Structures are given as structure tokens and as C-alpha cells.
Computed example of a mutant assay.
Amino acid sequence: MVELWGGPAVLPVNPGYVASPVPVAVHIVSASLYAVLGAFQFSAGIRRRHPGWHRAAGRLLVLSGLAVALSALWLNQFHARPGSGELLYLFRLVFASAMLASIVVGFTAIRRRDVTRHRTWMIRAYAIALAAGTQAFTLGIGATVFGTGELSTALLSGAGWALNLTVAEWAIRKNRAPRSHTRRYAQHS
């Protein structure tokens, strides 16, 4: 952000970002809000003790999540870094669209009072959004092992999204399993 508004250059300059800094700023601010505030949405204690806060924060998170996904799509379409490659372009297109769809499905579910479906899709959206943090590791470690290049960068970025979604699916299934097991056990007793 500092760099966009005239501060010292830390990263290689992307002429598209300099010419049109608003989508980059929207992406950074909304992603930061989504990552930090979103973490509190998964606390069962906060949801139980402060349901009004959960709803209000959720509405803000839906808006910021949509801004993250839409700005990611915009940046991917109009400001892709030179040399990032077609595969990375495709991954970004797929995962930003998946995040957008997950938020819409999750929001629609809670409007119908389907809490389980809402939670499932919001977990997926959050996992996709946080992949940028995971990619710092997959790209950093992967570059040491596999080297840098268009294909390895795309695959290692994809690995960040895949890893996050794998953990999200595990968490979704883990949270469902004890309830169904408990119900079956109670019915047979």
C-alpha cells in the first residue's frame, strides 16, 4: 500500500498496478479485513455469547469477501504480472470464482436458516482467501526444492489453494462426524 501511494519500491514494479492502484488497494484492504475479522467468526463461544456481533461482522465479511474475490478477478484479468503464465492465470480465475461462489452460496444458505450449509461454504471461502499466506510457504519452500519458473510457480501456488481446501474439507467433515455418531449411538441405546 505504501508503495502504491508513492513510498519506496520494495517489490518489482508492475506498470498496471501503478497506472490503476485502486483495484490493488481494494484487494489489500478487503483481504486484510476478511482475514482478521473472519477468524473470529469461527469461534463457537463468540457466536453463542454475541450472536448480534456475529451477524453484523458476517455482513461486513460478506461485503469484504466479495470485494476480495472481485478485485482478484479484476487484477487477474487486467493486471497479471508478466511471465506468470497461463496456468497461474487459470488457477487464479478458478479460485477467485470459487471464493465468490462460496460466499454467495453461504450467504444464501443463512438467509434460509440453513446453518450447516452456511458454515460449510463460509469455511471454504475463508480457506481460499487465506491461501495467499499458505502460498508464502509453498512458493518459498518449493522454490528452494524445485527452482523458480512459470510452471513451478503455478503449481506451487495451486498447492497453496489445494492444501487450504484440503484442511477446510477435513474440518468440515470432522465437525459433522461426532454429531452423527452421537445420534446413532443414542438411538441404539
Rank of each mutant, 00 (worst) to 15 (best):
A162H: 10
G83Y: 05
V36A: 14
L151W: 09
A9D: 06
T116A: 15
G65Q: 00
A136E: 15
F91E: 03
F78S: 14
A125E: 05
A39K: 06
G52Y: 13
D114W: 11
I110S: 06
Y185M: 01
V94T: 10
A56D: 15
T134I: 11
T138R: 02
L61P: 03
A57M: 15
L139G: 09
W121V: 05
R184F: 11
A131G: 10
N164S: 12
A177Y: 03
Q187S: 15
A25D: 13
R119H: 14
R92P: 08
E169H: 13
T182Q: 08
M1A: 08
L37N: 08
V36Y: 11
V10F: 09
T120E: 08
W74N: 01
R59Y: 15
V94R: 10
A109I: 09
I128Q: 05
H27M: 03
A56P: 13
Y185D: 06
L11N: 06
V104C: 12
R179S: 11
V2E: 04
R47N: 10
Q187F: 14
I110Y: 13
L33F: 12
A25V: 14
Y34F: 15
T108H: 10
M122Y: 07
F137T: 12
A80V: 00
A98E: 02
W5Q: 01
A154G: 11
L63Y: 03
V2F: 07
A162N: 10
T116W: 12
G45N: 07
T166D: 14
L33C: 11
G52P: 14
Q135M: 15
V13Q: 09
V18F: 14
L70V: 03
G149E: 04
Q187N: 13
T138Y: 06
T108F: 13
I128P: 01
I141Q: 04
V105A: 13
R124D: 09
A125K: 02
R55N: 15
L165E: 12
Y185V: 01
P178M: 00
S97E: 05
L11F: 07
A80L: 03
F78T: 15
Y17C: 13
A9Q: 03
L156G: 05
R117W: 12
Q41E: 13
H27K: 02
N14F: 03
P12E: 06
F91R: 04
L70M: 13
I172D: 08
L37V: 14
T182Y: 13
P51V: 14
M1I: 05
A72M: 07
G160D: 01
R112Y: 01
L33S: 09
Y17S: 15
Y34L: 12
F107Q: 10
A177K: 13
L70E: 03
F42H: 05
S32Y: 05
I172H: 02
T153L: 08
E169L: 15
F107P: 07
